[in-house]
Nucleic acid binder design. Sequence first.
DNA 1: CAATTTAAGACAACCGGTCGTATTATAATT
DNA 2: AATTATAATACGACCGGTTGTCTTAAATTG
Lengths: 201, 201
Amino acid sequence: MRKSTKTTKKDFNKDNILNQGVAMLMKQGYHGTGLQKVLDAVNIPKGSFYNYFEDKEHFGAEVIQYYIDPFLKQLAAHLNNSDTDALGAIQRYFDELIEELERNNFKGGCLLGNLMGEIGDTSDICQASLQTAVNRYRDLLQSGLKKAQDQGAVRKDKTAGSMADLLINTWQGALLRAKIEKTSAPVLQCCQELLGNYFKS
Amino acid sequence: MRKSTKTTKKDFNKDNILNQGVAMLMKQGYHGTGLQKVLDAVNIPKGSFYNYFEDKEHFGAEVIQYYIDPFLKQLAAHLNNSDTDALGAIQRYFDELIEELERNNFKGGCLLGNLMGEIGDTSDICQASLQTAVNRYRDLLQSGLKKAQDQGAVRKDKTAGSMADLLINTWQGALLRAKIEKTSAPVLQCCQELLGNYFKS
DNA sequence: CAATTTAAGACAACCGGTCGTATTATAATT
DNA sequence: AATTATAATACGACCGGTTGTCTTAAATTG
């Protein structure tokens, strides 16, 4: 077995752990998720965990990045696919998120929001990871709103950055409400009020 | 010792547990907080816990109500003390929250938000408690905004209820951001954009 | 003294993390 | 090219400690 092949297998295992980690941290939170359960689910022995990760905290930090990546790709795809209408692209992106939220019966929500609340101020390592994850998300959203501004769809008396922040924050809060009230009304309101009203020029 | 006295003492103990519960659930979350630690901190034997609460879940549900009560009183006080300017009262209330947040170096945030994220979809009992807590908060905020509408300070083309929801949600999201970025910028922005701009007539 | 409340301790399950060792792959040396 | 030395990875048993909950007995009550 050559080096490339082996590296691939190790990455495959690590991906499996991260994948399962996303799912379980999402459902049960950080302290509610035991490493044993994660590893059992992907048939990897307990002792092997520390070959892949330094400890649980670093594992959590990596899960955060692994989680947010697809969302960035999804939003970027929308922004690229319809670059004649950036505001519409953003709206369609959030519509997709809402659809998935409904499909999951409002369970889980956003891992970033959940972990910010649970360990955002107790684990330095995860806090740093959360910062970069949120910043990457914010920057992409900002660039989309900037484009929408240039296209004349979004007001220019506010910076794209501040609107991106406001949108992210309201979205996070709305997700929490949606979760405990088991209705998509809060997230719908978030998009309608901000994207459909306040941000428009 | 008469029955009334005894009941008082029991209530005193329970209050101590709840008080400590608020502090520890705030800092370490639900699954990160062991009952042992809570009881040790208030010098009540572990075996006595189930004299006060049915189980940990019900304990959490009671902590939630115990936590939100002072906030409702504080907001209500502001609304009553300056009933000539309801919008100003709301603003001053949130200013106080921001001051306390800074005093705590952005640690903790809001217990409701943290627990919504962590166990809002896994514990039915806590979910129900979170619902009523948030609803009570929302209703009070709604009545304040309604008053501000009647006073002509707040726009009337949106319902007070929808604005209360939007404010609460954005506030929650902003608190999460403030927590991981260790700055009050997000919560300041929340108040400025909504109370100082979007809601104004 | 009977009834009820309080508390001590036991309980199994689980936690994150470490250990020595066995297996394998890479590098170095002939 | 064959063999040896070195390192990396895989693995399961095990560590001390803690979890939430329950049983049972002591203390306190009316």
